[in-house]
């Protein structure tokens, strides 16, 4: 019986791996860019399955929401904006061979060289990987030993928000920087507003509150089960993106200053708590034992709001248009 289960697991893994590789090939080398992006979203979802198989449900949630969902949405939005930009460019000059993402291949000889180099790279990496021992605990023991004093019972959340909280803080900094950088480059592109179909409109009306609820659940559950601020924040962003896609013109109602505050909130709260800990005599971000759980939750709430708004702002792709009077 055990052998049959093992064989089944092996077959499943083999199928999953082959699907991943095939999807990746279609994504990268397929001739139609739109199809590539759709395959990319599928690739992300299969990747999430792989994470489940690798006993990483937190990562699976993050990959499905951010890696597949939000990144896919970003790509699709970029593709449509590219096409719009190309229409403008073509209108300004005589129509030549338009290039909506058709893959133009370099010379065959050059391709052979690159194939050889990639194959060599893979070979070297594979040899290195195969030389590693089949079992290795990593830091599981240290994490398990200190989990009870960390304030949460989900080990991944403990690592993210306590043991290696400084990494997460810098990562919030990267998210913040991405919005600042995107805003510095361009005002948000004006999309042509077409009235949403009845399916999308009613679907969104039902779905948005459910997504908000799901985000709240993921945030709360993250302390003791798979979930957490990043997963919750990305579900929040998904709700915002859906609202935007269904035609709700949020841009007109963008109160800019509160928006900026929310964008900076996650990072600001994290830094503030870290510094306060230092000022009361601990080390930076060292939570007192009794308050660890509460502080982590506080940081996660602020982070969830920030992450949701940040990802939605990144989807919009630029700074809000302001009145000239300002």
């Amino acid at each position: 019986m055990d052998g049959a289960v093992n064989a089944a697991a092996w077959a499943f893994d083999a199928l999953l791996v082959l699907t991943l590789l095939w999807l990746a090939w279609r994504v990268l080398m397929g001739p139609d860019l739109f199809k590539s992006i759709v395959f990319f979203i599928a690739f992300g979802l299969v990747m999430a399955l792989a994470w489940v198989r690798l006993r990483a449900p937190d990562v699976a949630l993050a990959e499905a929401a951010i890696g597949a969902g939000l990144t896919g949405a970003l790509f699709l939005a970029a593709l449509s904006r590219l096409a719009a930009g190309e229409r403008i460019a073509n209108a300004k000059r005589p129509v030549e061979n338009s290039d909506t993402g058709k893959s133009t291949r370099p010379h065959r000889g050059v391709r052979m060289v690159f194939i050889a180099m990639s194959a060599l790279f893979f070979g070297g990496l594979a040899a290195a990987l195969l030389s590693l021992p089949a079992e290795a605990p990593g830091l599981t023991i240290q994490v398990a030993e200190n989990l009870s004093t960390s304030g949460v019972s989900n080990p991944v959340t403990a690592v993210l928000l306590n043991f290696r909280g400084y990494d997460t803080l810098l990562e919030m900094g990267v998210l913040f920087l991405a919005v600042v950088a995107a805003w510095s480059l361009t005002p948000a592109p004006k999309e042509p507003v077409s009235p949403p179909g009845i399916v999308l409109a009613s679907f969104v009306r039902v779905l948005s509150p459910m997504l908000l609820l799901a985000a709240g659940y993921l945030l709360w559950a993250g302390t003791h089960a798979p979930g957490g601020a990043f997963q919750a924040g990305s579900v929040l962003a998904a709700a915002a993106v859906l609202l935007l896609l269904s035609g709700k013109d949020m841009k007109a109602n963008w109160p800019e200053w509160p928006l900026r505050v929310v964008l900076g909130l996650g990072l600001g709260v994290f830094i503030a708590i870290g510094l306060v800990m230092m000022l009361i005599g601990h080390r930076f971000l060292e939570y007192p034992l009794d308050y660890a759980g509460d502080l982590i939750l506080l940081i996660e709430v602020a982070a969830t709001l920030s992450i949701g708004v940040t990802l939605a702002a990144l989807f919009l792709g630029g700074r809000p248009q302001r009145d000239e009077r300002k």
């Binding site: 690798l54 006993r55 990483a56 937190d58 990562v59 993050a62 990959e63 951010i66 890696g67 939000l70 990144t71 970003l74 790509f75 939005a77 970029a78 605990p137 990593g138 830091l139 599981t140 994490v143 080990p155 991944v156 403990a158 690592v159 993210l160 043991f163 290696r164 990494d167 997460t168 990562e171 990267v174 998210l175 920087l177 991405a178 950088a181 995107a182 480059l185 361009t186 957490g228 990043f230 992450i307 990802l311 990144l314 989807f315 792709g317 630029g318």
Partner: peptide, 25 residues
Amino acid sequence: ADPVPHAMVITGIVVAVSATAFALV
């Protein structure tokens, strides 16, 4: 499973989406 690499991957996914979003703009 070892949770530290999981935390690293989640961090990496968020960093990747930030870089991707900026690259697209």
